[in-house]
Design a protein around this nucleic acid. Structure first.
Lengths: 142, 142
DNA sequence: ATTATTGCAAAAAATTTGCAAAAGC
DNA sequence: GCTTTTGCAAATTTTTTGCAATAAT
């Protein structure tokens, strides 16, 4: 059994929730994709595995996955919620191209440190963050 | 006449658009409020000034204000679009409390510098960014 | 006069919810 | 058996759009 499934199982147990086949299908489809996914894209793929699974279950399951720390939500400027892996995947931020809308993941430890420092100085206990830099990517700059 | 109105006027002229009373009402209501506003809050206030103005006009006007640089959009984790001033207001980021949902504006020049540096190193031309740190605020920490 | 802007209502898009039926423990 | 989970469809919420009427230049 995958580590991720164990994490989910533990979370469910601790919160008086039950395991279910459909929730596991959503989990596995989510884990099998390395990209950022919208609820809709996830639903499409889940449908192919098990057509009996509805949209609401995908939304409800992703909420659980976020709560137990396996997934996290990010919103780009299009207003749609994207889900990305959050376990054994280093936290990262994004550079989003204003022209072609592609993005790359980035991480800068110096920025991470300063973010923590700054929040703490403001008497704020940081738990997570999103940082998105919009601009023009290499390809579109030519 | 306010500087902001001149900026809008210039933008409209350069883009073959016309001035209009209703657009000006939305602009003035937006300028009169110092906080972050949702389209809905804006609509409520605009309605009181001029009940003949519809929701669509508020949305369309805010789009124009963003395009001409007077406003900017930010999305917190609630998925709703907030509009904030972008002219003669220093750029800033946000600390959002996960418990009470209040936020404070912050700015850290060292982070700003590093963001620029990092993007450039990735062959990316940065144009704008959003950085939101979620956590627990001073009040909710007790 | 010509063309942009608007209100309105309807459409779209994304997500949530109520509820009876099915599934897990 | 009791309680959680689910599908479905309907409801909500936020934003966009089509169009005929109106306003700006």
């Amino acid at each position: 059994m995958k580590k991720e499934e164990q994490i989910l199982e533990k979370y469910l147990q601790e919160n008086g929730m039950r395991q279910s086949k459909r929730r596991n299908v959503v989990l596995r489809v989510f884990l099998s994709q390395e990209k950022h996914l919208t609820a809709d894209e996830l639903y499409d793929t889940v449908m192919k595995k098990d057509p009996s699974i509805g949209r609401a279950t995908v939304y409800r399951t992703m909420k659980v996955l976020c709560d137990c720390g396996l997934a996290r939500e990010t919103q780009f400027s299009d207003g749609i919620t994207y889900y990305e892996h959050n376990y054994l995947h280093n936290h990262h931020d994004h550079l989003v191209c204003n022209k072609c809308n592609t993005f790359v993941e980035v991480i800068d430890e110096r920025i991470e440190k300063l973010q923590e420092q700054m929040a703490t100085k403001k008497n704020f206990i940081p738990q997570s963050h999103t940082m998105i830099i919009y601009g023009i990517c290499r390809k579109c700059a030519d």
